[in-house]
């Protein structure tokens, strides 16, 4: 993938094949011209590749302890230092990225898909359907989150799958509310009425008119959701749902590092930096996507 696509390339494309000239195609070209967003994307891709390869490239085993070593600062043998039990911090960050990225992306996708569909259907249908769907959201909102999670753990026991479900079950509600608000505004636009008189089905209108025009706030909220989900995971792990030591995640490493911050700062710094870089990349990419998907934003 090239970082900057030459302008001539897109011009040729236009004259050759008008069919491929859709919103998504244009968005890709525009995204490719946004260097910051491409940097973010590249960083995220590298991170995912490294996370996938971790079992083979990690310098140590994630649960091998060296109590004699204890907590040692970064060195040539242990780049990120070791924790109080003498476990290599780099290895733990690498293994942690597998959990954190998986939680971040899967739970957010679950929230995104349910939330967007729920909000769009409620907003577009209006009337009783809308009232019932949104009251369900209100009721779920009112349930205390921690009690809800503990109940889930009691009933189903702990598993990674349940972790995704629990997070998804919380995050989609805000998404649904945002999407419903957007839908209510967009469905009064004349172009949606024009689509109705053209005889498009409801599903076609939702897919081609409502969702593309509501993407801006949704993308921004998504990029905000991923980091909050990653941190939420550490809270859930603390409650006993999700992962347990010696497994690690960024959230759990950071909360553990926070406790020993004064004596062993490297235990907090390295997972902190990794998380921060990921969030930066996500925000750059999110902003880039939002601009790229809006044909009215500046042309280049």
């Amino acid at each position: 993938m090239t970082l900057v696509s030459p302008l001539g390339d897109s011009v040729n494309h236009q004259t050759k094949k008008p069919q491929g000239h859709s919103l998504w195609h244009d968005a890709r070209l525009r995204l490719q011209r946004n260097k910051l967003a491409m940097f973010g994307l590249l960083f995220l891709i590298c991170l995912v590749v490294i996370a996938l390869l971790t079992p083979w490239i990690a310098p140590y085993n994630y649960d091998s302890q060296n109590l004699a070593l204890g907590a040692s600062p970064p060195s040539s043998k242990h780049w990120f230092g070791t924790d109080t039990l003498g476990r290599d911090q780099l290895t733990r960050v690498l293994f942690g990225s597998r959990i954190s990225l998986m939680v971040g992306f899967i739970a957010t996708s679950v929230a995104l898909i349910i939330g967007v569909l729920w909000g769009t259907i409620a907003g577009f249908s209006g009337g009783k359907v809308d009232a019932i769907m949104m009251r369900i959201v209100d009721i779920l909102y009112a349930l205390p989150f921690a009690i809800f999670i503990i109940l889930l753990t009691v009933i189903f026991g702990r598993s990674l799958l349940l972790l995704f479900l629990a997070i998804g079950a919380v995050e989609w509600m805000t998404m649904a509310r945002i999407m419903r608000g957007q839908t209510l505004a967009i469905k009064r636009q004349e172009y949606v009425e024009a689509a109705l008189t053209m005889g498009l089905s409801r599903w076609q209108i939702i897919r081609r008119y409502l969702i593309p025009n509501a993407l801006g706030p949704i993308i921004v909220y998504t990029t905000l959701t991923i980091p909050s989900v990653i941190l939420l995971e550490s809270f859930l792990s603390f409650l006993g749902l999700g992962i347990q030591p010696p497994q690690s995640s960024w959230g759990s490493l950071i909360s553990a590092g926070g406790e020993t911050m004064e004596e062993y700062p490297w235990l907090l710094i390295f997972p902190g930096i990794t998380l921060a870089l990921t969030l930066f990349s996500l925000n750059f990419l999110g902003d880039g996507l939002r601009d790229a998907l809006d044909p009215q934003s500046a042309k280049d």
Binding site: H21, Q189, E193, A194, M198, G199, R208
Partner: peptide
């Protein structure tokens, strides 16, 4: 029946989907 009765709206700024090219907007019906 819909294709036989079509509508043109008042505000040309609001009656076209801003995220669709003219080609797509015309190809749809």
């Amino acid at each position: 029946i819909r294709p036989h009765i079509q509508m043109v709206f008042q505000d040309p700024y609001a009656s076209l989907n801003p995220r669709m090219t003219v080609y797509d907007a015309l190809a749809e019906p």
